[in-house]
Design a binder for these strands. Structure first.
Length: 283
DNA sequence: CACCATGTTCCTTG
DNA sequence: CCAAGGAACATGGT
C-alpha cells in the first residue's frame, strides 16, 4: 500500500493515536528493517521515549520522539516498502506472522508488519535528504518540473519514479498521472512540450489529491476489531462500494477497455517494472 | 514450476 | 563523474 496517498492517510490516522504516548517496551523481530541502526541502539533510544509529532515526507513517515530526560529529540524514520503496514492493536492481541517491530505503548501495541521486509523503521534519516519536492507543496512548481525534465533522456514514466525529481509517486500513480495528462509513458522526459509539462504537473497533483481524498473516506480500524484494517489500497468506499482497483484508470488493466475511449489498455515493461497506458488517449 | 507484485539500493556497464 | 539497466532483497498470490 505504499505510495504518497496511502502514507498520507496512514499518517493522519496514526497522528492522534500516537500523540504523547510513551514507549514502554521494544520488540525487534527482524533486525533488517532497522538498517543501518543496530537493534541495541534502537532499543536503547526508544525505550522510555515519547511520541511528539508525526509527519510525512514522500513515502516516508517521520516520527519525532523525545527520548528519556536530557537527550535531544530524534526522528524515527518509517517506510512501508512494498508490503508494510503500521497500526495499533490491543496489548493482548495476537501478533501477525510478519510483525517486524512491536512497540509497547502501555495501553496498546504499535505494530510494524511487513511480509517482505523491504520496509524500514530506523534512526537513520539520510534517506530523506535526497528527496525532491513534495508534489502537493509549494516547492513543486511547473517551472522546476520543466527544468528537471529537460535534463533527462529517460522515458517520462521511469523518470516519475525518481524520488529526487518529486517525492512520493510510485508505480501505480505514475501510470495514472500519465493517462490523466494524455502523455505516453515512452516519451523521453526532455521531449515534453511546455504544455505537456503543465498538464503533467496538474495531473500529478490531481491524481494524488484524489487518492488521498478517497483514502480519507475509507474507515480505518486499527483499534483491533479486525475489520477494515487493510488501508484503502485494499479498501472500499462505504457509500459507493467502489473498490480501490475499480477507481484506477489504467493500472493493472491490461487488455481491458479504456474507461474513456474503450481502446484496450496496453502493458509494457520499463526499467523492469510494468507500465499501463491507453495507446489512443496518450501520445 | 513459472511469473508477477504498491520500493529502494547496490553493482555493473558504457 | 554520470546515466541506465539489471539484480538483489523476501514472501506470497495466481
Amino acid at each position: 500500500m505504499p505510495e504518497l496517498p496511502e502514507v498520507e492517510v496512514l499518517v493522519r490516522h496514526l497522528k492522534p493515536l500516537l500523540r504523547r504516548k510513551v514507549i514502554r517496551g521494544v520488540q525487534v523481530n527482524r533486525d533488517r528493517v532497522l538498517r543501518p541502526t543496530h537493534a541495541r541502539t534502537f532499543k536503547r533510544t526508544l525505550e522510555g521515549a515519547r511520541f511528539i509529532h508525526l509527519t510525512r515526507r514522500g513515502k516516508y513517515l517521520l516520527f519525532e520522539i523525545s527520548p528519556r530526560q536530557g537527550r535531544q529529540r530524534r526522528i524515527l524514520l518509517g517506510h512501508l516498502g512494498m508490503t508494510g503496514r503500521m497500526y495499533l492493536v490491543p496489548s493482548k492481541a495476537a501478533l501477525p506472522k510478519h510483525a517486524a517491530v512491536v512497540l509497547d505503548l502501555g495501553d496498546s501495541l504499535f505494530v510494524f508488519e511487513d511480509t517482505r521486509y523491504f520496509g524500514r523503521l530506523t534512526l537513520d534519516t539520510t534517506a530523506v535528504e535526497g528527496l525532491g519536492p513534495e508534489p502537493l507543496g509549494s516547492d513543486f512548481t511547473i517551472a522546476r518540473l520543466a527544468a528537471d525534465l529537460a535534463r533527462s533522456n529517460q522515458p517520462i514514466k521511469v523518470k516519475l519514479l525518481d524520488q529526487s525529481l518529486v517525492a512520493g509517486i510510485g508505480n501505480i500513480y505514475a501510470s495514472e498521472a500519465l493517462l490523466r495528462a494524455g502523455i505516453s509513458p515512452k516519451r523521453p522526459a526532455k521531449s515534453l512540450s511546455p504544455a505537456g509539462v503543465k498538464r503533467l504537473w496538474h495531473a500529478i497533483r490531481q491524481t494524488l489529491t484524489d487518492a488521498v481524498a478517497f483514502g480519507s473516506t475509507v474507515p480505518l480500524d486499527y483499534a483491533g476489531t479486525g475489520r477494515g484494517e487493510r488501508l484503502f489500497y485494499y479498501g472500499q468506499m462505504p457509500d459507493t462500494e467502489t473498490r480501490f482497483d475499480e477507481r484506477l484508470q489504467v493500472y493493472d488493466r491490461e487488455g481491458k477497455p479504456c474507461r474513456h475511449c474503450s481502446t484496450p489498455i496496453k502493458r509494457i515493461v520499463q526499467a523492469a517494472r510494468s507500465t499501463f497506458f491507453c495507446p489512443k488517449c496518450q501520445s
